[in-house]
Write a protein that binds this DNA or RNA. Structure first.
Lengths: 134, 134
DNA sequence: AACGTAATGTTATAATATAACATTTAAAAT
DNA sequence: ATTTTAAATGTTATATTATAACATTACGTT
């Protein structure tokens, strides 16, 4: 059984469910508040579930926002690297899958004699919807 | 007089000095601790100085580390966008200046009908020094 | 069943960052 | 030079984000 299809525990599944049903990235304490009726009482329970979900690639953290988002890509390989488009108007987030980013960044790193392992990329701007409205 | 050469206030200069003399990115409370002898007593004084320094491009924040680094580039245009190489072994940070990143990211964004404004990029791996040692 | 590993529950606390408000300084306008 | 305005400061309190420590429970493997 591969890591990706491992059964999640109750807490992990609860946290993943709420992230998957959210249209926007959520903060840890928002998640906590939303699922207290399901028996999760402390921040640590949320953070531990998030840690595991991030480890297996089901969830990514958006560093600049201290927010967490469920990955929609089947068998996402972004267990380590992440690339997001973040709308400054409506805060919606789209994950980029462009694999050529890897080779591009490797090259940029190589120029500095730096050995590329992974990356976080956050691109800010206006999403398609908000472009129309503004 | 351009923004870049504006005189800094006492607190701003104090914070910038310590960041410029540091070989590594510093955390806000590390800065606070280090400069308490210079009359800065509260976190807010540090954060306000950092905000201003970031605004004028003298300092950048490394989001994934909650750390701050002085910009070494004269007249750095990275008031908004930042690109870093971060060594996972020694935590040293190098800022990339590659301007072609802008056009590359614009194109990636455009594919998603997204209007690029700015970005944060953090590339993790091994720096030149640590590559040799490992 | 016994073992080892991972996950849980719980309380407390650490680390990071901002709100609110009164006061002072400095730049610009008159 | 004085007035006006915007920015920065000082201070206390508090909000937000995240982890430490430790006892207990569940679970897969043998």
């Amino acid at each position: 059984m591969s890591l990706e299809t491992l059964n999640l525990t109750k807490n992990q599944q609860t946290v993943l469910d709420i992230l998957e049903s959210a249209s926007e990235p959520l903060k840890a304490y928002t998640i906590l508040f939303d699922i207290q009726k399901k028996g999760i009482k402390s921040p640590l329970q949320v953070y531990r579930a998030l840690d595991k979900l991030i480890e297996i690639g089901k969830v990514h953290k958006i560093e600049s926002r201290n927010s967490y988002i469920a990955c929609k890509h089947e068998g996402c390989n972004a267990k380590t690297s992440t690339s997001f488009l973040i709308c400054e108007n409506c805060d919606s987030v789209t994950e980029l899958t462009a694999n050529n980013l890897f080779s591009y960044f490797s090259k940029q790193a190589e120029k500095n004699n730096f050995n590329y392992k992974k990356h976080n990329l956050e691109i800010f701007g206006l999403c398609a919807n908000c472009k129309l409205k503004n």
